[in-house]
């Protein structure tokens, strides 16, 4: 389906330490995740708050210095050492909170043009033209360039955030819960916009979210994280049809859908981490069918395989 690998993440670790000496405390926010993101796809990363999905995104774009592991972007390592600014221009981020992520003292033009200026563009006329083009692209008007962020509604602010990300013509965007702070009707606008941009420019998107119905709608492949580990990775349809890991099942069973009769029949499954017996063998991320990975040890693997063959649910 997809050929070229845009981003290759291997054993990425992000540990935070606090205190020193006896009181030293290490939080393993991300503890060894592996995945590839292919050209042109939308890769979803889901999990509950505190599972490390945002940290993963931030470590990839080097807002944090990863503790360990390798990240390859367009074939070049970017996790350690000095950053190649020309390369990193190709990777941009959209943040969750459109109010907090825009400087209230800068005009929209200044905010959007900042990326261009940093990358060395000096011609004022060219900058203005670029800004106007990108504003039109995200569904705003060129007149908006001279206004300040507070003059816009939530959805429009998020469009400004998107405009800022796409003006440097990135090939890869990390979208960190770009719609969870927005109203339903506006969520649809932003999702449609991201979809259009992706079709028009062939941008690859890593979409971090906790709303599974949005993920199901928008993403091609989905990875589920739980406490710093990736527990399952599969194509969208496969994951929603054949969830294998008990945590994925519990996550899927918790999604409320807009249909009262469905809601009456829905039964929530609770996840108990103690169902795994990892005394004898530690689990690893293993491929069970093509493109469907699950965190399991050998014993669980046979169990999952059987359930897939029979089409019977294990839990």
């Amino acid at each position: 389906m997809f050929s070229e690998v845009v981003l290759k993440v291997r054993d990425l670790k992000m540990h935070f330490t606090s205190g020193r000496g006896k009181r030293k405390h290490v939080v393993k926010a991300v503890d060894g995740v592996d995945f590839d993101i292919y050209q042109g796809e939308v890769f979803g990363l889901v999990g509950e708050s505190g599972c490390g999905k945002t940290t993963t995104g931030r470590a990839i774009i080097r807002l944090y210095q990863p503790t360990g592991g390798n990240v390859e972007f367009l074939g070049k390592p970017i996790a350690q050492g000095k950053l190649d600014m020309e390369l990193m221009k190709k990777m941009q981020m959209i943040f969750q909170d459109p109010i907090a992520s825009l400087n209230p003292r800068m005009t929209v033009k200044e905010i959007i043009a900042q990326g261009l200026r940093i990358s060395g563009l000096k011609d004022e006329r060219e900058i203005t033209e670029n800004v106007h083009n990108v504003l039109r692209k995200v569904g705003l008007l060129p007149e908006h360039a001279s206004r300040y962020p507070h003059e816009f509604s939530g959805g429009q602010r998020q469009r400004i955030g998107i405009a800022r990300a796409i003006i440097v013509k990135p090939s890869f965007i990390i979208a960190d819960e770009p719609i969870s702070a927005l109203d339903v009707s506006i969520q649809a606008q932003v999702i449609n916009l991201l979809n259009d941009l992706r079709e028009e420019f062939g941008i690859t998107i890593m979409f971090i979210a906790h709303d599974l119905s949005v993920v199901k709608y928008f993403c091609d492949r989905v990875a589920v994280m739980y406490y710093g580990k990736m527990v399952e990775l599969a194509t969208n349809d496969e994951l929603f049809k054949n969830p294998l890991h008990p945590y994925t099942r519990s996550l899927l069973s918790a999604v409320p859908l807009p249909d009262p009769n469905y809601e009456k029949t829905r039964k929530r499954i609770t996840y108990n981490p103690n169902v795994h017996n990892y005394n004898q063998q530690k689990p690893t991320l293993q491929e069970i069918t093509e493109g469907h990975f699950v965190l399991a040890n050998d014993e669980e693997m046979t169990k999952y395989k059987r359930s897939l063959d029979d089409g019977i649910k294990v839990f």
Binding site: V184, Q187, A188, I191, N192, N195, L212, V214, Y217, V255
Partner: peptide, 22 residues
């Protein structure tokens, strides 16, 4: 109608009906 249509749908991939304007 639009409110119901603008929620992402777990069963399909059709374009969402966003409500135009504010």
């Amino acid at each position: 109608w639009v409110l119901l249509g603008s929620t992402p749908d777990i069963t399909s991939k059709k374009k969402l009906t966003a409500i135009p304007g504010t």
